[in-house]
């Protein structure tokens, strides 16, 4: 190598430590995959609720006791929580320059995502299997 460097690392070590060919791609890819899943699930939930004659808790629970409706709603809540957490992650990375605040917010985002996922699984399991 003709390029001058200020590092004691060997060329192999530098190459191994560079680039996003491993896990760096995962965040971007999962954002897209959850987005694709959210298109049909989101539209189904939105139009089912909009089309309900009377929007009352009892009516919605009755609708959710249909396994297909419960499954799509659960997928919507899970994929939505994941997609939202990935998105908030990117926004925090871009605009919060204080490292401690940045890490704390991204940690809280992940905790909130897990709590939301647990709550939606619990909710739909309870409605389906009571």
């Amino acid at each position: 190598m003709t390029q001058q460097t200020n590092s004691f690392q060997t060329d192999t070590a530098k190459v191994k430590g560079l680039g996003s060919s491993k896990s760096g791609f995962g965040h971007w890819w999962m954002q897209r995959m959850s987005a694709v899943l959210l298109i049909p699930c989101g539209l189904y939930v939105l139009f089912s609720l909009a089309g309900a004659e009377v929007l009352q808790a009892q009516v919605v629970v009755a609708w959710l006791t249909q396994p297909f409706n419960a499954a799509v709603t659960l997928l919507f809540a899970l994929a939505g929580s994941y997609h939202g957490a990935l998105g908030v992650d990117v926004v925090v990375e871009d605009y919060i320059h204080n490292h401690a605040v940045n890490l704390t917010l991204r940690y809280l985002t992940k905790i909130l995502m897990i709590v939301m996922m647990m709550s939606s699984v619990f909710a739909l399991a309870t409605i389906l299997f009571g």
Binding site: A57, V60, L64, A85, S119, A123
Partner: peptide, 16 residues
Amino acid sequence: LSLGLVIFVYWLYRLA
């Protein structure tokens, strides 16, 4: 929408 989803999931939890 992320904020809205928090309310939506809370609502699902309360439906149960």
